[in-house]
Design a protein around this nucleic acid. Structure first.
Lengths: 203, 203
DNA sequence: ACCTGAACACCGTTCAAGT
DNA sequence: ACCTGAACACCGTTCAAGT
């Protein structure tokens, strides 16, 4: 009974299971992951290239699930917003997976698609050509950072010991997903406004 | 000869050695770290609490090295810029250490100092009170993301296979530290401009 | 081709024993 | 108080053996 009639495993099955497992709060370990799949550890090696391969499989699952092509006909602002929103949500919904993905190199096709869509939109916005790439990288960096914000603990500071200025503000401040969402929205607003002003200044 | 006359180890010595070791490109492992310090692995446990303790010691070294109090009398913009610049440089100079620190909880006093300084500056800028915290978190997220940008490979995309729009831009684009620096500067410009416009809109 | 169990090198951590 | 060496549980990876 070493080889079942229908394959128990696949890259996708492993990636999906690992995603569930990690997002449930566990560390990514192959032994319990294999047990969860009802399979021996060494079986995993027939489908993915070790632990890093599992992480890449996780990423692949996320990308196919979240990334859709944005409609070409809408205005540049909506295109940027929807594009960045998708990427952000992909990460922010799976912050623990994101943490693992910091170490593995990202597939080039993904990056190319993301960069191309943003470059086209920024070109339409009227941004000077030599500012396009840096602006994309700013967007990239912010999206990443905003998603990682979901990893920080609920209450970062104790309102009682944060002084007269910060204390009351912290008490009125949302936490968790709500805080995370506001950070993303506000930052994206800043970026969009920045692009608009840069484009106007070109004259 | 189990106990030398002058202590060979301390929290700071361990943190500093770990920082060097990690930034040289190695993974953080206690065995080689101890060997480097001419000491047995179990000796480390008398000064720091395991591997996570080593990471916290690394962070402590960085904070005492980089973080200085900004002069109170200058205008809000310079205060924000210098404050954020310090934090960013602390991370960007040690991206591999930053990656490790994602997992361990940050000491509260550090965060309080950073948040307080920014909150005061944003207040002086005239930003509405209920927008201060979210704006700080935007700055925090962006600084983090911009520093992590230093971890991505030199050439993210191959100019030859990046199409007519992106190809030429990539060829003219700087890489490494220069690219990293520009991303940070541009993003911070966006944020400062955003704060200014928000403050003006308040009326 | 796919799955298994055993073996391997290695890791972080603990602890009784030394000074 | 500080350092050591040995022991421990556990991890990722490899591989010959099965179907």
């Amino acid at each position: 009974m070493a080889r079942p009639r229908t394959a128990r495993l696949s890259r996708e099955i492993i990636g999906r299971a690992a995603l569930e497992y990690v997002e449930a709060g566990h560390e990514l370990q192959l032994v319990p992951l294999a047990r969860r799949l009802g399979v021996s550890v060494s079986s995993l090696y027939h489908h993915v290239d070790g632990r890093d391969g599992v992480i890449r499989a996780m990423r692949q699952v996320l990308v196919t699930e979240y990334i859709a092509v944005a409609p070409e006909h809408t205005d540049w602002e909506s295109r940027i917003r929807s594009e960045v929103e998708l990427t952000w949500r992909m990460y922010a919904d799976h912050p623990r997976a994101l943490e693992l993905m910091l170490t593995v190199v990202i597939d080039e096709p993904d990056v190319l698609r993301f960069y191309s869509a943003l470059a086209a939109a920024l070109g339409d916005a009227g941004l000077p050509e030599d500012e396009i790439l840096t602006t994309i990288e700013v967007i990239d960096a912010f999206t990443f950072g905003a998603a990682l914000d979901a990893l920080s603990p609920e209450a970062i500071l104790d309102p009682e010991r944060s002084g007269e200025l910060l204390g009351p503000l912290l008490r009125a401040h949302p936490s968790g997903a709500e805080r995370n969402r506001r950070v993303f929205d506000r930052g994206l607003d800043f970026i969009i406004a920045g692009v608009r002003s840069r484009a106007a200044a070109r004259g």
